[in-house]
């Protein structure tokens, strides 16, 4: 298997991040873990945006990934982190395969609102489920990694951080290849001209369906990692504001590169954390102005700063 320049760069950055984790304070490792796990969910949003669909309900798969990890440990004795994450992805794939049959019939705002509706249905079910802790959710059982149980605290935090980096690298490489592969480019072609794609003998709907299912799996992985990192899941994971946050990060980063959601998620987390720290009552306003600034000055997201630099363009 040959790796291109982007993939090698991603791997080097991932290694640097893992090493950085050993010398970083716990709060920073935690912040980065959550940011990178959310970036995986955003990758799912971006995959769909590239094909012209905006999901207002990606929290559905984030929540499915998180709850499956939590329920696997609590109710089914699945304590191995990798098995629990894989199960979360599998459940998300099954759900996406069912919902996708309906959702991929719709475009534009209709797709967006339907995806939001399904996410809110899950939120409603979880809120009413006493066995799953209702609005409080429940704690994730202590997990193991190939039989090894990291000690609660710094050890566990470091392990889940490394796992998130590894998962992020693997997904980033796969998505990088996917966007350059036949299906990835043709999904972009669907966004640009669905009629032409149909008259090339392809089914835009089934292309979007495959893309939707793949995006669901990636987002569920992000949800599962978040559950492992925080040790807790609650219905808020499926709430519309959570899905809105993923769109916010997607717009912040832009669609230009597979690394953009990771950068945007970190920027978002830092801005939010410090906004809450310094202006606790108006932190949402700070985030709002940040997004406004990006939309006005960098309509293609933060990544356009890098791509402009690369092409020698200056503003």
């Amino acid at each position: 298997m040959r790796f291109d320049k982007t993939e090698i760069s991603l791997a080097l950055v991932a290694i640097a991040c893992v090493l950085f984790g050993f010398i970083s304070p716990g709060w920073l490792i935690f912040l980065l873990t959550i940011a990178l796990a959310k970036a995986l969910v955003v990758q799912g949003v971006v995959m769909q945006m590239r094909s012209g669909l905006v999901s207002f309900g990606q929290g559905l798969f984030y929540c499915i990934g998180g709850y499956t990890v939590g329920m696997g440990g609590q109710f089914f004795g699945i304590h191995d982190a990798i098995a629990a994450l894989a199960l979360g992805m599998a459940v998300a794939i099954v759900v996406a395969m069912i919902l996708g049959l309906l959702l991929t019939r719709y475009r534009d705002i209709f797709f967006a609102m339907l995806s939001l509706a399904f996410s809110m249905i899950l939120f409603g079910i979880l809120v009413k489920s006493q066995g799953l802790g209702s609005t409080d959710g429940f704690n994730v059982h202590n997990w193991t990694l190939f039989g090894w149980a990291p000690e609660t605290g710094a050890d566990s935090q470091q392990t889940v951080f490394t796992m998130t980096i590894a998962a992020g690298l693997l997904i980033a490489i796969l998505i990088h290849r996917y966007t350059k592969a036949g299906i990835g480019v043709i999904c972009e072609a669907v966004r640009e001209n669905e009629v032409r794609v149909e008259y090339l003998g392809l089914s835009p709907r089934w292309l979007l369906y495959g893309n939707y299912v793949a995006a669901a799996a990636v987002s569920a992985l992000g949800g599962g990692l978040t559950a492992l990192a925080t040790g807790h899941v609650d219905p808020e994971m499926a709430y519309w504001t959570t899905s809105g946050e993923f769109i916010f990060i997607a717009l912040l980063g832009g669609l230009g590169h597979v690394a953009a959601p990771f950068i945007a998620a970190i920027v978002f987390s830092v801005v939010r954390t410090y906004s809450i720290e310094f202006v606790p009552n108006t932190w949402q306003m700070i985030l709002g102005f940040t997004l406004l600034g990006v939309i006005v000055f960098l309509p293609k997201g933060l990544w356009s700063l890098v791509s402009r630099e690369k092409s020698g363009e200056r503003t």
Binding site: R177, Y178, A181, G182, I183, V185, I186, G201, L202, L207
Partner: peptide, 9 residues
């Protein structure tokens, strides 16, 4: 009719 998932276009 089923484009590749990973081989480059």
């Amino acid at each position: 009719p089923r484009p590749s998932f990973l081989s480059p276009l």
